[in-house]
Design a protein around this nucleic acid. Structure first.
Ligand SMILES: NC(=O)c1ccc[n+]([C@@H]2O[C@H](COP(=O)([O-])OP(=O)(O)OC[C@H]3O[C@@H](n4cnc5c(N)ncnc54)[C@H](O)[C@@H]3O)[C@@H](O)[C@H]2O)c1
Ligand SMILES: NC(=O)c1ccc[n+]([C@@H]2O[C@H](COP(=O)([O-])OP(=O)(O)OC[C@H]3O[C@@H](n4cnc5c(N)ncnc54)[C@H](O)[C@@H]3O)[C@@H](O)[C@H]2O)c1
Lengths: 204, 204
DNA sequence: TTGTGATTGTGTTCACATTCACAATTAACA
DNA sequence: TGTTAATTGTGAATGTGAACACAATCACAA
């Protein structure tokens, strides 16, 4: 697959399609038109068709897309078919909320390791997973962990990212309020809820 | 101010600038060039200059921008100068993490009301704020609350949004995994952490 | 006052993303 | 088998945002 050719915006939308498709699968819907899917995900139907066409033509004209085929295809594209082992660093309020949220499993993520640097937290458990000391963070090298979630305070985020990247992580969801410097091969998505909230009053 | 004229992307970036400026103010930095600011927020300096130019010319050529003036100006633009009273609906794991996070205050948000529909939670407290029953959610009409954070399960999100909008809310940060239908005058930002994470493996 | 070095503000160009619109294709059915 | 209605896949048109590049401006020093 030629990554260059596919727009970033397309990749960003694929999970939205997948979420809708998983919902439709629960409802035992067998096929769906781009038009109907567009309503679910609040987009123009042409966007959906063009997005999907980057990866081949798996719609049927006159009918639409087969829900389970499309769902499987998108999971393949996004590499979500095999469980993605994921590490969480920072078992604070936000980190704990994330670690105990069952919803990630549905998208193929498995939080198999949790690290924190607080004596009070190390050794404790979230669900079945024991919180380990960040002094052992480099241990992830010997696992198959490629994905990471950073939920530490901002001033610990960069050093955390450095260790993660050194030890095999190629994707980071960064929830701390600062930007990270990483090699080009590593993909970082930074979400600061305070930033997202701060946009809203402007429009009022 | 003519909202139409200013690109949405610009508004989305202003909070990033503000965050960097608040940091610089702590460091007692008096002025900053677009070039330096660009490094902090990981953007091209021309983007910053163009963004700011939509609202006037408050930079000094040869010197850069006055940090505290720019910070105040952006807060004015974003309407963050007066505390924005905010309601949280859904005091679960994510909601509790948000309600107990002190960082929102720095951007002018004040979570003055929390609602949940669980008997076990109603009457409890997060910090100084008592969790109230969603049956009383319409009470927010008599407050000055314009902003809302939805952290309920997805199937309760739409009905929650409807009540919020009916009672004066014009901005919603929606953390539940579904899209909301609201009147055009209401601005919604939907963040589903599972979606954000799902993009990452593609690039690995 | 004049020259110098830095930096803004912005017209222009370029790149990308969205929307339109329709020929091609399929399913259903008479 | 042929006709109809639906829907995809996609070239072309349109819209939007990012990057470039430089004249205008400013601080400051000689
Ligand atoms: N909670 C929110 O609503 C919210 C909103 C916006 C942004 N954030 C950001 O998310 C991050 C986490 O927020 P939170 O509310 O969970 O904070 P928190 O203080 O509750 O949790 C931080 C956790 O990180 C741990 N930690 C500190 N240094 C560490 C290190 N070097 N290595 C590993 N772990 C370390 C702490 O022991 C703690 O458990 C922060 O950067 C915060 O700015 C949070
Ligand atoms: N926790 C995460 O990491 C995470 C990640 C991605 C998405 N989400 C989404 O965020 C939302 C909240 O997640 P969570 O982990 O905090 O869930 P949670 O189950 O811990 O909390 C949900 C809370 O909402 C309350 N609630 C239920 N129905 C309600 C109603 N009608 N009105 C008001 N309150 C109601 C419940 O009593 C509970 O306190 C969910 O939609 C979830 O899909 C969470």
């Amino acid at each position: 697959m030629r990554y260059q050719k596919v727009p970033d915006e397309t990749i960003r939308r694929l999970p939205r399609y997948l979420r809708a498709l998983l919902f439709l699968q629960q409802r035992k819907t067998e096929s769906i038109s781009s038009q109907k899917l567009a309503e679910y995900v609040q987009l123009n139907s042409a966007v959906i068709r063009k997005d999907l066409s980057h990866f081949g033509a798996f719609g049927k004209r006159g009918t639409g897309y087969n829900v389970s085929l499309l769902s499987k295809t998108i999971r393949d594209i996004l590499k979500l078919n095999k469980p993605q082992k994921t590490v969480l660093v920072g078992a604070g309020r936000l980190g704990t909320a994330i670690a105990s949220f069952p919803g990630f499993k549905r998208y193929g993520f498995d939080i198999t390791a949790i690290y924190d640097n607080s004596k009070a937290k190390i050794g404790g458990k979230i669900g079945d997973t024991t919180i380990k000391s960040t002094s052992r963070l480099a241990d992830i090298r010997r696992s198959e962990i490629k994905m990471a979630i950073i939920a530490t305070p901002p001033d610990a985020a960069q050093e955390t990212a450095d260790i993660l990247v050194e030890n095999g992580v190629t994707g980071i969801l960064n929830l701390s309020s600062c930007y990270l410097k990483v090699p080009k091969r590593v993909k970082v998505r930074t979400i600061d809820l305070a930033m997202e909230l701060s946009m809203l009053p402007y429009y009022s």
